[in-house]
């Protein structure tokens, strides 16, 4: 009987021995380099203003204080609070000699979290191909006529997809860290994250934790989409169909939710709940939605996806 570990090794071998996989890693690294390069170029083109940044910040503060006084009546309380926090942060930065607009290693690492969208798309392609490709190649017979139950085979494939996602995330983080260190130097490593706490005072936090939080929210999204792609893969049995439908659903799903946001039932769609960062920074798609509600919906969808995948893979005959 096959051990799960060996099946997983087989699936990994099938992923990493394909040139396509390394082309994907190459695309990701290229995108990161482009991003870091653009940030560096943008920084150096505004070099003049960078030299006297303290003056600039002071000017900004004056502007904001003025507009706070003048438009106190018609600006919303959120707007007001945001400006007040901004002023506090700027004052703290001037006092402690921390240039907030200067690019550091962490600004590149933080910006790299935007590329998790790319990581998601690449992993979705791999996951959508995971089961369907075996049918396209005809190797499914080879795979299933062996001393491993179909459930075990399926689980090893899912695990390999998630491991690939993890691998890309590590690449994303490590490459952006290296690019940051290379372009901006290691001095930014200990740069603190400035936030205004509930007590109205400025706190210094860890940039690393902040980056990891950004990554964390994106990983939830990543896992949901990959699981959905995996389900589509097991259902369609054709690589190109599975990849096309997975990407279509992801791209169309988010647009659709934004268009239909005025209907109440939209909150039951996975796409409305998949971005949990809407509760931390930003506003939820429907005002009545809460973090607990979204987590509940996501867990339900996750279980449903796995159930359909399992039925589709283990209960159907393999003919033709």
């Amino acid at each position: 009987m096959s051990s799960f570990g060996m099946l997983l090794r087989n699936e990994n071998m099938k992923i990493y021995r394909r040139p396509r996989t390394w082309a994907m890693v190459g695309i990701l690294i290229l995108a990161l380099m482009l991003l870091a390069g653009l940030m560096k170029w943008d920084e150096s083109s505004s070099q003049d203003s960078a030299a006297n940044w303290k003056q600039n910040l002071m000017q900004d503060n004056e502007h904001m204080q003025q507009s706070l006084k003048e438009q106190a009546a018609d600006s919303s309380p959120e707007m007001k609070q945001m400006m007040e926090e901004r002023i506090l942060l700027n004052e703290y930065a001037i006092e402690h000699d921390i240039n907030p607009n200067e690019n550091s290693l962490w600004s590149i690492v933080n910006a790299s979290s935007m590329l998790i969208v790319l990581v998601t798309l690449l992993t979705v392609v791999i996951a959508a191909d995971m089961v369907a490709a075996e049918f396209s190649w005809g190797t499914i017979k080879l795979l299933l006529v062996g001393p491993a139950s179909r459930s075990k085979v399926l689980l090893s494939k899912y695990a390999a997809s998630l491991l690939f996602a993890l691998f890309l995330l590590v690449v994303n983080f490590a490459v952006s860290f290296a690019l940051g260190a290379g372009l901006e130097g290691m001095d930014g490593l200990s740069q603190p994250l400035l936030t205004v706490g509930a007590d109205g005072a400025v706190h210094e936090g860890s940039m690393l934790l902040d980056s990891l939080q950004r990554y964390g929210f994106s990983i939830v999204q990543l896992i949901m989409y990959v699981t959905m792609a995996f389900m589509i893969s097991a259902s369609f049995r054709s690589s190109s169909m599975a990849i096309a439908f997975s990407l279509l659903f992801i791209l169309a799903g988010n647009t659709l939710v934004n268009i239909l946001a005025r209907y109440e039932w939209v909150k039951y769609l996975m796409f409305a709940n998949v971005d949990l960062s809407q509760y931390v920074s930003g506003t939820p798609i429907r005002p009545e939605m809460t973090l607990t509600f979204s987590i509940g919906i996501l867990v339900a969808y996750y279980a449903l996806f796995h159930f359909i995948t399992w039925i589709m893979f283990t209960k159907r005959d393999v003919a033709g």
Binding site: S2, W137, G146
Partner: peptide
């Protein structure tokens, strides 16, 4: 039917895949 193998792997790697499934 036809012996379908993983075409992007070598013959030996294909056999290794099979070998790992059996104890």
């Amino acid at each position: 039917e036809n012996p379908e193998m993983y075409k992007f792997l070598t013959g030996y790697q294909n056999l290794v895949l099979c070998a790992r499934r059996h104890a």
